[in-house]
Design a protein around this nucleic acid. Structure first.
Lengths: 337, 337
DNA sequence: AGTCCTGTTTGAAACGTTTCGAAATCGACA
DNA sequence: TGTCGATTTCGAAACGTTTCAAACAGGACT
């Protein structure tokens, strides 16, 4: 079975290879009569263009890539989906890759995509990665850091104001009357977590009579939340907080399950607020109050920013920050009643 | 900024291009002294191998692809993750693509990957797709149909016995004493759904005094489940089923939320069982009984089967079927008490 | 009939890598 | 020193595509 290429098509159609190429890439430049012959030849040979040849000649691919730490986390899955859609609108494909929170895999993916000459990279990471991206950029592949503000002005980024988010969440808890607030999340080495916590402490420090406790839980999943929930439930009632601010929705959902199971009434005895506004949060048995960072346009803005970099439109701003909103649902709205 | 290629590296290191290539691909074949010089040249030039050139010469890539209908559905996300891991173990990369349940996007992805000369394709689809895969296979790219038994003996597939799963679930409901069973899911045009339903009716028909009702809900998400849940809750108590078998866990979770909110006690008044055993099912407030189709080894088996096809090992079986297990959790275990 | 224009078609060169036969090098041994 | 064999290095060819300058065809004018 011999590979069928553009030459075979050209031979069968009785035209030059250049004409077949034109037919494929600039169909308007080739006469109707030849187009018909070429179409026939392609069908009868089952010709499939070889991307390697094309890309070698072109010197670049027509794809972008999104490297995320954990695509099974709905937060990243939702971004990935938006990215994919927006990329398709712009006529480029999007590769989605999962680094599984491992530096090694992240590195491998970055190298892989650079070798594949993607147009540009979108990267979400919990790890310090700006240096790595700077090298890649210097060699010609631009990137956008997603979900984290870049510290270098050279590095494009699109981020959420997590300090403000932490402030909003905590202020809300205080407003509805909570006084013993527990922040769950960690490790504080992660900027997103540290920022949310620091937003929280801004509020609690400014307010007399409000205490802020911190539990460092670095497994920020439902499982991790359940651990914390059980620990809370086991405390004597007077040692329990009257509000919990979880660093993400997954944690909050885990906590919610275990405290409700233990008979603690949410939100009457304990108000609970998460962060990220993932789909399952709204769909929870007791819908979860939360902080929504990325509005509908976040994914689109991300791709658009990347294209700005790719096309060299260095029209000023390359660092965008979204301001988060408070989303009040049942898990806080009836506290104390 | 001129692209740096293998020739520049060779020139700087004072060796032939062939030697640099050897260094990259068969490091043991090149002397320590030259290896050192080459390493230095690569570092100082920031050389990144160009995949297009490599792939063009080789005639194939070193990647496989998984095309799924909806990666934000944890069922597919979990498969994707396992696939990625197993592929990495075997030293190939895995592309994950989301067809968004659209035939067009599915087609576009298939074409894209064929042009990229992936080693092989993994495909989950709700749509009829065997003909398409047969064409692709004939042109040299093998594939495995994931989650659905192939009808052609030429087409490799790895599937779950959904009739047996439906039977298991329903038998369990009957065993614990339920007599008015409601099946939720649709459309019946989808084989997985039809099979689960037919498994259910095998049980109910064999048993006197057991009724089977069917609600066709083709939005098989939490949202769709909530719709159904509300509809059930609105019925007068005597018209309600005493058990619900949902065609997947997402549906079941949606139903669960709405019926519990309406004050129906689960599992005392209403037993509920889902299908697929997604992570959130176990993590639900009332952990969900379910049918587990794919054990831990499903993703690995999928990749291994694909490699069998790629390497032409046609050692008999190319169609695997996993037998599902019943997983009993709280949403059924206390029915009637 | 010649000239100029516009729009198509042609064929060769180039993209960066791997592989393969040939050439070179080296060590051991006669 | 010369020869042999094993190992390492070399350089050219080939992979399939796009693009570009050049050739060509066909009208519309002079």
């Amino acid at each position: 079975m011999t590979r069928v290429g553009i030459r075979e098509v050209a031979a069968l159609a009785g035209v030059a290879v250049g004409t077949v190429s034109h037919y494929l890439n600039h169909p308007d430049k080739v006469s109707a009569e030849r187009a018909e012959r070429i179409r026939g030849a392609i069908d009868s040979l089952g010709f499939v263009p070889n991307n390697a040849g094309r890309q070698l000649r072109l010197g670049r691919s027509s794809a972008i890539a999104y490297v995320a730490p954990d695509v099974s986390n709905p937060y990243f899955a939702e971004i990935a989906e938006a990215v994919e859609l927006r990329a398709a609108e712009r006529g480029v494909s999007a590769f989605i890759a999962n680094s599984h929170r491992s530096r090694e895999r992240e590195d491998a993916h970055l190298a892989f995509f650079e070798q594949h000459q993607v147009l540009g990279l979108l990267v979400s990471s919990h790890l310090p990665i700006e240096d790595r991206l700077a090298h890649v950029r210097r060699r010609g592949t631009p990137s956008v850091l997603v979900g984290q503000a870049a510290s270098s002005p050279e590095q494009a980024s699109i981020s959420l104001d997590d300090v403000e988010g932490g402030r909003l969440a905590t202020q809300h808890l205080v407003d509805i009357g909570c006084r013993r607030i527990l922040f769950v999340g960690g490790p504080v080495g992660i900027k997103q977590v540290a920022d949310r916590l620091s937003g929280a402490s801004i509020v609690t420090r400014a307010m007399a009579g409000v205490a802020l406790e911190v539990i460092d839980q670095s497994d920020r999943t439902i499982r991790g939340g359940r651990e914390v929930g059980r620990a809370i439930a086991e405390r004597p009632a007077e040692d329990r907080p009257d509000a919990i601010f979880a660093a993400n929705d997954l944690l909050a959902l885990g906590i919610l399950q275990e405290v409700v199971r233990a008979g603690i009434e949410v939100p009457r005895d304990l108000a609970l607020i998460g962060y990220d506004d993932i789909e399952y949060g709204e769909a929870s048995l007791i819908p979860l109050s939360t902080i929504r960072g990325r509005h509908g346009t976040f994914g689109e803005a991300t791709v658009d920013l990347l294209f700005g970099e790719i096309e060299g439109r260095t029209d000023g701003v390359r660092q965008l920050a979204f301001t988060p909103d408070l989303v009040v649902r049942e898990s806080t709205s009836g506290f104390g009643r």
